[in-house]
Protein backbone atom coordinates (compact mmCIF):
# COMPACT_ATOMS: atom_id res chain seq x y z
CA UNK A 1 0.00 0.00 0.00
CA UNK A 2 2.79 2.36 0.94
CA UNK A 3 4.77 1.71 -2.21
CA UNK A 4 1.63 2.25 -4.23
CA UNK A 5 1.25 5.70 -2.78
CA UNK A 6 4.88 6.48 -3.50
CA UNK A 7 4.34 5.37 -7.05
CA UNK A 8 1.33 7.62 -7.53
CA UNK A 9 3.27 10.54 -6.12
CA UNK A 10 6.20 9.78 -8.38
CA UNK A 11 4.00 9.49 -11.44
CA UNK A 12 2.41 12.83 -10.71
CA UNK A 13 5.81 14.48 -10.26
CA UNK A 14 6.99 13.15 -13.61
CA UNK A 15 3.73 14.22 -15.22
CA UNK A 16 4.12 17.70 -13.81
CA UNK A 17 7.67 18.03 -15.18
CA UNK A 18 6.67 16.81 -18.62
CA UNK A 19 3.60 18.99 -18.92
CA UNK A 20 5.47 22.03 -17.68
CA UNK A 21 7.74 21.64 -20.71
CA UNK A 22 4.77 21.47 -23.05
CA UNK A 23 3.22 24.47 -21.29
CA UNK A 24 6.32 26.55 -21.99
CA UNK A 25 6.33 25.50 -25.65
CA UNK A 26 2.66 26.34 -25.95
CA UNK A 27 3.19 29.70 -24.29
CA UNK A 28 6.04 30.68 -26.64
CA UNK A 29 3.93 29.86 -29.67
CA UNK A 30 0.84 31.52 -28.17
CA UNK A 31 2.71 34.72 -27.29
CA UNK A 32 4.12 35.09 -30.79
CA UNK A 33 0.78 34.39 -32.46
CA UNK A 34 -1.12 36.74 -30.14
CA UNK A 35 1.22 39.66 -30.69
CA UNK A 36 2.06 38.96 -34.30
CA UNK A 37 -1.32 38.24 -35.82
CA UNK A 38 -2.42 41.88 -35.80
CA UNK A 39 0.57 42.89 -37.89
CA UNK A 40 -0.01 40.39 -40.65
CA UNK A 41 -1.64 42.00 -43.65
CA UNK A 42 -1.20 41.89 -47.37
CA UNK A 43 0.96 45.04 -47.21
CA UNK A 44 3.18 43.44 -44.55
CA UNK A 45 3.73 40.31 -46.61
CA UNK A 46 4.13 41.97 -49.98
CA UNK A 47 5.72 45.32 -49.19
CA UNK A 48 9.26 46.55 -48.78
CA UNK A 49 10.47 47.76 -45.39
CA UNK A 50 10.49 51.53 -45.00
CA UNK A 51 11.57 53.98 -42.35
CA UNK A 52 14.44 51.74 -41.21
CA UNK A 53 12.24 48.71 -40.80
CA UNK A 54 9.71 50.44 -38.57
CA UNK A 55 7.04 50.41 -41.27
CA UNK A 56 6.25 48.63 -44.48
CA UNK A 57 6.64 44.92 -45.05
CA UNK A 58 9.04 42.05 -45.15
CA UNK A 59 8.62 40.84 -48.71
CA UNK A 60 12.33 40.92 -49.63
CA UNK A 61 13.18 38.92 -46.52
CA UNK A 62 10.62 36.26 -47.47
CA UNK A 63 12.01 36.14 -51.01
CA UNK A 64 15.54 35.87 -49.64
CA UNK A 65 14.70 33.02 -47.30
CA UNK A 66 12.88 31.15 -50.08
CA UNK A 67 15.86 31.62 -52.40
CA UNK A 68 18.37 30.43 -49.79
CA UNK A 69 16.34 27.40 -48.82
CA UNK A 70 15.66 26.44 -52.43
CA UNK A 71 19.35 26.63 -53.24
CA UNK A 72 20.28 24.61 -50.18
CA UNK A 73 17.78 21.84 -50.88
CA UNK A 74 18.72 21.61 -54.57
CA UNK A 75 22.28 20.85 -53.53
CA UNK A 76 21.72 18.83 -50.37
CA UNK A 77 18.81 16.59 -51.42
CA UNK A 78 20.44 14.70 -54.33
CA UNK A 79 23.75 14.50 -52.47
CA UNK A 80 22.08 13.25 -49.31
CA UNK A 81 19.90 10.66 -51.06
CA UNK A 82 22.85 9.41 -53.13
CA UNK A 83 24.98 9.12 -49.98
CA UNK A 84 22.24 7.20 -48.22
CA UNK A 85 21.83 4.81 -51.16
CA UNK A 86 25.53 4.11 -51.16
CA UNK A 87 25.65 3.61 -47.40
CA UNK A 88 22.69 1.23 -47.21
CA UNK A 89 22.75 -0.58 -50.54
CA UNK A 90 26.33 -0.70 -51.77
CA UNK A 91 28.76 -0.03 -48.95
CA UNK A 92 30.27 -2.96 -47.12
CA UNK A 93 31.27 -2.61 -43.48
CA UNK A 94 34.79 -1.31 -43.50
CA UNK A 95 37.12 1.64 -43.07
CA UNK A 96 35.44 3.82 -45.68
CA UNK A 97 31.91 3.44 -44.33
CA UNK A 98 33.22 3.99 -40.82
CA UNK A 99 34.89 7.23 -41.92
CA UNK A 100 31.77 8.44 -43.70
CA UNK A 101 29.64 7.73 -40.63
CA UNK A 102 32.04 9.56 -38.36
CA UNK A 103 32.04 12.48 -40.82
CA UNK A 104 28.23 12.62 -40.84
CA UNK A 105 28.07 12.65 -37.05
CA UNK A 106 30.77 15.30 -36.91
CA UNK A 107 29.02 17.42 -39.51
CA UNK A 108 25.77 17.15 -37.56
CA UNK A 109 27.56 18.45 -34.48
CA UNK A 110 29.37 21.42 -36.04
CA UNK A 111 27.99 24.62 -34.47
CA UNK A 112 26.05 26.73 -36.93
CA UNK A 113 28.32 29.73 -36.43
CA UNK A 114 31.31 27.57 -37.36
CA UNK A 115 29.49 26.70 -40.59
CA UNK A 116 29.26 30.44 -41.07
CA UNK A 117 33.01 30.87 -40.57
CA UNK A 118 33.67 28.02 -42.97
CA UNK A 119 31.30 29.43 -45.58
CA UNK A 120 32.99 32.78 -45.23
CA UNK A 121 36.45 31.27 -45.65
CA UNK A 122 35.65 28.90 -48.52
CA UNK A 123 32.72 30.28 -50.52
CA UNK A 124 32.81 34.02 -49.86
CA UNK A 125 36.58 34.56 -49.88
CA UNK A 126 38.39 31.59 -51.46
CA UNK A 127 35.91 31.00 -54.29
CA UNK A 128 35.36 34.74 -54.35
CA UNK A 129 31.55 34.51 -54.54
CA UNK A 130 31.33 37.43 -52.13
CA UNK A 131 28.41 37.64 -49.72
CA UNK A 132 25.82 36.04 -51.98
CA UNK A 133 22.88 33.66 -52.28
CA UNK A 134 25.14 30.93 -53.61
CA UNK A 135 27.58 31.21 -50.69
CA UNK A 136 24.71 31.15 -48.18
CA UNK A 137 22.88 28.29 -49.90
CA UNK A 138 25.97 26.10 -50.12
CA UNK A 139 26.73 26.72 -46.44
CA UNK A 140 23.16 25.83 -45.46
CA UNK A 141 23.29 22.78 -47.75
CA UNK A 142 26.25 21.33 -45.84
CA UNK A 143 24.50 22.07 -42.58
CA UNK A 144 21.34 20.11 -43.47
CA UNK A 145 23.16 17.29 -45.29
CA UNK A 146 23.44 15.02 -42.22
CA UNK A 147 19.68 15.27 -41.52
CA UNK A 148 18.85 14.30 -45.08
CA UNK A 149 21.34 11.41 -45.15
CA UNK A 150 20.15 9.95 -41.86
CA UNK A 151 16.42 10.12 -42.65
CA UNK A 152 16.98 8.77 -46.18
CA UNK A 153 18.91 5.85 -44.75
CA UNK A 154 16.08 5.08 -42.37
CA UNK A 155 13.63 5.18 -45.26
CA UNK A 156 15.75 2.79 -47.33
CA UNK A 157 16.19 0.39 -44.42
CA UNK A 158 12.45 0.29 -43.88
CA UNK A 159 11.90 -1.26 -47.33
CA UNK A 160 11.84 -5.04 -46.82
CA UNK A 161 14.72 -7.11 -48.15
CA UNK A 162 12.39 -9.28 -50.17
CA UNK A 163 11.57 -6.34 -52.47
CA UNK A 164 15.19 -6.22 -53.56
CA UNK A 165 15.57 -9.97 -53.74
CA UNK A 166 12.51 -10.35 -55.91
CA UNK A 167 13.93 -7.99 -58.46
CA UNK A 168 17.44 -9.45 -58.32
CA UNK A 169 16.07 -12.97 -58.71
CA UNK A 170 14.51 -11.92 -62.02
CA UNK A 171 17.97 -11.02 -63.25
CA UNK A 172 17.85 -7.27 -62.72
CA UNK A 173 21.09 -5.46 -62.02
CA UNK A 174 21.52 -3.98 -58.57
CA UNK A 175 20.78 -0.45 -59.71
CA UNK A 176 17.63 -1.48 -61.55
CA UNK A 177 16.47 -3.31 -58.44
CA UNK A 178 17.06 -0.21 -56.34
CA UNK A 179 15.49 2.14 -58.85
CA UNK A 180 12.34 0.15 -59.50
CA UNK A 181 11.78 -1.79 -56.30
CA UNK A 182 13.33 0.24 -53.49
CA UNK A 183 13.37 3.96 -54.26
CA UNK A 184 9.65 4.33 -55.03
CA UNK A 185 8.78 2.87 -51.63
CA UNK A 186 11.45 4.81 -49.76
CA UNK A 187 10.61 8.13 -51.37
CA UNK A 188 7.98 9.35 -48.88
CA UNK A 189 10.37 8.61 -46.02
CA UNK A 190 13.13 10.48 -47.80
CA UNK A 191 10.87 13.48 -48.21
CA UNK A 192 10.66 13.64 -44.42
CA UNK A 193 14.37 14.41 -44.35
CA UNK A 194 14.01 16.99 -47.09
CA UNK A 195 11.19 18.76 -45.26
CA UNK A 196 13.06 18.72 -41.95
CA UNK A 197 16.07 20.15 -43.77
CA UNK A 198 13.95 22.93 -45.27
CA UNK A 199 12.61 23.82 -41.85
CA UNK A 200 16.07 23.98 -40.37
CA UNK A 201 17.59 25.94 -43.22
CA UNK A 202 14.78 28.50 -43.11
CA UNK A 203 15.23 29.16 -39.42
CA UNK A 204 19.01 29.34 -39.11
CA UNK A 205 20.59 32.72 -38.59
CA UNK A 206 24.24 32.22 -37.69
CA UNK A 207 25.45 30.66 -40.98
CA UNK A 208 23.83 33.32 -43.16
CA UNK A 209 25.03 36.12 -40.89
CA UNK A 210 28.54 35.73 -42.29
CA UNK A 211 27.82 34.55 -45.81
CA UNK A 212 24.87 36.35 -47.33
CA UNK A 213 22.48 38.36 -45.21
CA UNK A 214 21.90 42.08 -45.55
CA UNK A 215 19.62 44.11 -43.30
CA UNK A 216 18.15 46.29 -45.99
CA UNK A 217 18.26 46.10 -49.76
CA UNK A 218 16.19 48.40 -51.96
CA UNK A 219 15.69 45.79 -54.69
CA UNK A 220 15.15 42.08 -55.02
CA UNK A 221 18.16 39.96 -56.01
CA UNK A 222 18.88 39.54 -59.72
CA UNK A 223 21.22 36.61 -59.63
CA UNK A 224 22.60 34.01 -57.26
CA UNK A 225 25.64 36.23 -56.75
CA UNK A 226 23.60 38.95 -55.06
CA UNK A 227 23.08 39.49 -51.37
CA UNK A 228 19.60 39.00 -49.96
CA UNK A 229 17.64 39.82 -46.86
CA UNK A 230 16.40 36.85 -44.84
CA UNK A 231 13.65 36.43 -42.24
CA UNK A 232 15.72 35.21 -39.28
CA UNK A 233 18.35 37.87 -39.79
CA UNK A 234 15.69 40.53 -40.21
CA UNK A 235 14.17 39.53 -36.88
CA UNK A 236 17.56 39.54 -35.19
CA UNK A 237 18.40 43.03 -36.40
CA UNK A 238 14.98 44.46 -35.60
CA UNK A 239 15.09 42.95 -32.12
CA UNK A 240 18.61 43.93 -31.11
CA UNK A 241 20.24 46.44 -33.44
CA UNK A 242 17.45 48.84 -34.22
CA UNK A 243 17.82 52.31 -32.66
CA UNK A 244 14.21 52.35 -31.47
CA UNK A 245 13.44 48.83 -30.32
CA UNK A 246 10.08 49.57 -28.70
CA UNK A 247 8.81 51.33 -31.82
CA UNK A 248 9.50 48.35 -34.07
CA UNK A 249 8.08 45.77 -31.63
CA UNK A 250 5.02 45.02 -33.82
CA UNK A 251 7.30 44.48 -36.80
CA UNK A 252 9.43 42.11 -34.70
CA UNK A 253 6.42 40.06 -33.71
CA UNK A 254 5.09 40.02 -37.26
CA UNK A 255 8.43 38.79 -38.61
CA UNK A 256 8.74 36.22 -35.83
CA UNK A 257 5.25 34.91 -36.59
CA UNK A 258 5.89 34.54 -40.32
CA UNK A 259 9.17 32.74 -39.64
CA UNK A 260 7.60 30.51 -36.99
CA UNK A 261 4.69 29.57 -39.22
CA UNK A 262 6.96 28.68 -42.14
CA UNK A 263 9.23 26.53 -39.99
CA UNK A 264 6.47 24.84 -38.00
CA UNK A 265 4.41 24.01 -41.07
CA UNK A 266 7.40 22.21 -42.58
CA UNK A 267 8.23 20.42 -39.33
CA UNK A 268 4.66 19.36 -38.76
CA UNK A 269 4.49 18.10 -42.33
CA UNK A 270 7.62 16.05 -41.74
CA UNK A 271 6.25 14.56 -38.53
CA UNK A 272 2.95 13.57 -40.16
CA UNK A 273 4.64 12.14 -43.25
CA UNK A 274 7.01 10.12 -41.10
CA UNK A 275 4.33 8.57 -38.94
CA UNK A 276 2.31 7.57 -42.02
CA UNK A 277 5.40 6.09 -43.63
CA UNK A 278 6.28 4.13 -40.51
CA UNK A 279 2.77 2.74 -40.17
CA UNK A 280 2.79 1.60 -43.76
CA UNK A 281 5.90 -0.51 -43.35
CA UNK A 282 5.35 -1.78 -39.86
CA UNK A 283 3.07 -4.53 -41.15
CA UNK A 284 5.54 -5.70 -43.77
CA UNK A 285 8.42 -6.61 -41.48
Amino acid sequence: MKSNRAETLFNWAMRLVTYSITAVIAYIIFDIIRNGIGVISWEFLSGFPSNGGAEGGIFPAIVGTVALVTGAIIVALPLGIASAIYLTEYGKQGKFIETVRLAIVTLAGVPSIVFGLFGLGLFVLYFDFGASIIAGSLTLALMILPTIIVTSEEALRAVPRSYREGSLALGCTQWTAIRTNVLPYALPGMMTGAILGIGRAAGETAPILLTVAAFFLPTLPNSIFDQVMALPYHLYVLATQHPDIELVRPMQYGTALVLLVIVLVFNLGAIILRSRFQKKFKSLH
Partner: peptide
Amino acid sequence: KPFIEILAGIPSVVIGFF
Protein backbone atom coordinates in the same frame (compact mmCIF):
# COMPACT_ATOMS: atom_id res chain seq x y z
CA LYS B 1 6.42 13.21 -28.58
CA PRO B 2 5.63 15.31 -31.64
CA PHE B 3 4.74 18.28 -29.46
CA ILE B 4 8.15 18.29 -27.83
CA GLU B 5 9.73 17.70 -31.22
CA ILE B 6 8.13 20.96 -32.33
CA LEU B 7 10.19 22.73 -29.71
CA ALA B 8 13.33 21.47 -31.42
CA GLY B 9 12.08 23.09 -34.61
CA ILE B 10 11.47 26.59 -33.29
CA PRO B 11 14.24 28.75 -34.80
CA SER B 12 16.84 29.84 -32.29
CA VAL B 13 16.36 33.48 -33.23
CA VAL B 14 12.68 33.21 -32.28
CA ILE B 15 13.59 31.65 -28.92
CA GLY B 16 16.11 34.44 -28.40
CA PHE B 17 13.48 37.02 -29.27
CA PHE B 18 11.05 35.46 -26.80
